[in-house]
Design a protein around this nucleic acid. Structure first.
Lengths: 343, 343
DNA sequence: ATGAAAGCGCTAACAA
DNA sequence: TTGTTAGCGCTTTCAT
């Protein structure tokens, strides 16, 4: 294979120094129109294209950001990633994606001072297996933006919706429909289950606010927020002594699984059991019945995450870590109000 | 910020040359147990970690592969990517992901001899906007594996299922249920629609094989294979003079959209219209009704793609381009046979 | 505005 | 088995 065309080759042909070629290629100032044109011609003639690897080494940066999520095939993340990639591309960044399966070791590897560290200039991270403590114990020089429920300790930005408020709102919606035995599927009463716990808190607040008792036996935990877990939990509830007449699910996938389980028993949604989800993924807009849900502004989350991360990457002195609240809203569909609301 | 620990620092402390340290760090042979240990101690003491960027430049490779798909939020791709990432990681490769939105220019940029070229050592590519010709016109040195329907020209590997056979099988299933007016949603009668055309061919073959006439007015094109397009096409069919009693959809998303449209009119699935999809995404296993579908072996596709790509990357003389057929099977669910088959 | 030259940190060909 | 050293191709400080 013949040698690649280098900057020096171009410089030689154009009769200038490599410094000047570099200036032209990178669009820096201080180049006469004449030299610029001469260089440009040489570039075209030789078919020169810069070697990214060399540039990376010289600059000490990779031009990549990493986005680390627990599961890629979760529609919520897939939809979010889509927007992140777009936003990053606009700023000239490539996106390295990895999924961790929620494995703490794997997650740690991404924020630790490891050998992969230089592969990306910053990380947008949605942790699942790492608690607050493990998060704090990381490469302090790594620009980091956290998605989901972890509180910022001031050294990174955190972006999420107000989970407590959103969950309260969701639960109130069910209570206001006159439902009396409202269940919750998705609680995770352990260190890494912060997000779930916030939702459970909102669930309780709604009951308090409406002066209704919380049915503790109707709060069900699930290891993950996916369809199978949702179906399993719902089946369990329906097998119980006093099955619920409404369910607040901690994700739309859980809701879809739950609905599947309800219908499988010949019961109706929402007549027998009303179901509300969380995330507003596209599935819920086309399912039968369509799913009432809490809709976070994913576009806002994605663009803000990229924006904040690039700002961090570009700053010599790290900006203070912010707590950012993304907008959200309740979207009412058939799974709580029936076909009446069909548009 | 204090200087990073380099290979030389380690060498100095251990009293050996940097060459030896490099050998130890990379696990090469030819190192005495004693020197090895001495070096290792120095590494630990200084907290040395290799600079990937420098290594990349020196080796002329990036240790990354790119996976390029049209849409990240399509469950089929999300599920596939999941397996690709796992397989790549096992071999020590990072995965750079990008979506092209099917934009031909963008797609070309990934296989062209551009400046990003060195960012990845090879590409797994699912083209949408590029036809066969545009594919051939690329950086010949780029190791490439193509997914989906494009025939290999011998310079890259191509992996896909037998679309014609699978589509024939799907259509036969509908005909064998006694359906007479079988529609097809998803045809794309233009250069970049090869995959769709193969499916249409299988659709026709099934009719021929069963001695039934094809209803040309029931073959509907869609720009994309997503829920909205499926719903729209189905609505169009139902508005027609002779609505179908069965539909072969070119993806599960199309099927889910179609089912949505059918139910929205108060019709029943499968009693009034039987629906079959393609891809076997998780959505179809939990939807109501569950979706009969063609299930390609995604794990096989992903691991084979990575395997073939790495083989290409590792070969000085490129191996011949293979046509690889992934296994597939028909999975019968409620959308064609009703709740009878419910398990 | 442009040139000369010293790195960036690692790998690997060549020697010893 | 280990050391020496010349790159890899670009960026960037310091001169001019």
């Amino acid at each position: 294979m013949r040698r690649e065309v280098t900057l020096r080759d171009v410089a030689e042909l154009a009769g200038v120094s490599s410094r000047t070629v570099s200036n032209v290629v990178n669009g820096y100032a201080n180049v006469t129109a004449r030299t610029k044109e001469r260089v440009q011609r040489a570039v075209d003639e030789l078919g020169y294209r810069p070697n990214v690897l060399a540039r990376n080494l010289a600059q000490g940066r990779s031009g990549q950001i990493a986005v680390v999520v627990p599961y890629l095939d979760t529609p919520y993340f897939a939809e979010l990633l889509q927007s992140v990639i777009r936003a990053a591309r606009i700023s000239g960044y490539n996106v390295l994606i990895d999924q961790t399966d929620g494995d703490p070791e794997h997650e740690r590897g991404f924020i630790a001072h490891g050998s992969r560290r230089l592969l990306f200039d910053g990380v947008i991270f949605s942790p699942l297996g790492l608690d607050q403590q493990a998060l704090a114990d990381r490469d302090p020089a790594l620009p980091l933006v956290i998605l989901g429920e972890r509180t910022s300790d001031g050294t990174f930005d955190h972006i999420g919706i107000d989970d407590v408020a959103a969950s309260r709102q969701a639960t109130e919606h069910l209570l206001d429909l006159g439902r009396r035995r409202v269940a919750a599927i998705g609680d995770q009463p352990y260190a890494t289950g912060e997000a779930a716990q916030l939702r459970t808190r909102g669930f309780r607040q709604a009951h308090e606010g409406r002066g209704r008792p919380v049915h503790e036996d109707l709060i069900i935990g699930t290891p993950r927020f996916n369809r199978p877990d949702g179906a399993r939990a719902m089946a369990h509830l329906l097998d119980g002594e006093n099955p619920p007449d409404a369910v607040f699910c901690y994700s739309d996938l859980v809701a879809l699984g739950a609905i599947h389980a309800i219908l499988a028993r010949g019961l109706r949604v929402p007549e027998d059991v009303a179901v509300i989800g969380y995330d507003d993924i596209e599935d819920g807009r086309y399912s039968n019945p369509t799913v009432t849900t809490i809709s976070p502004d994913k576009e806002w989350i994605a663009t803000t995450a990229v924006e904040r991360l690039l700002l961090r990457i570009g700053s010599s002195t790290p900006p203070p870590g912010l707590e950012l609240r993304a907008p959200h809203k309740l979207i009412v569909r058939e799974s709580t109000t029936g076909t009446i609301s069909r548009q």
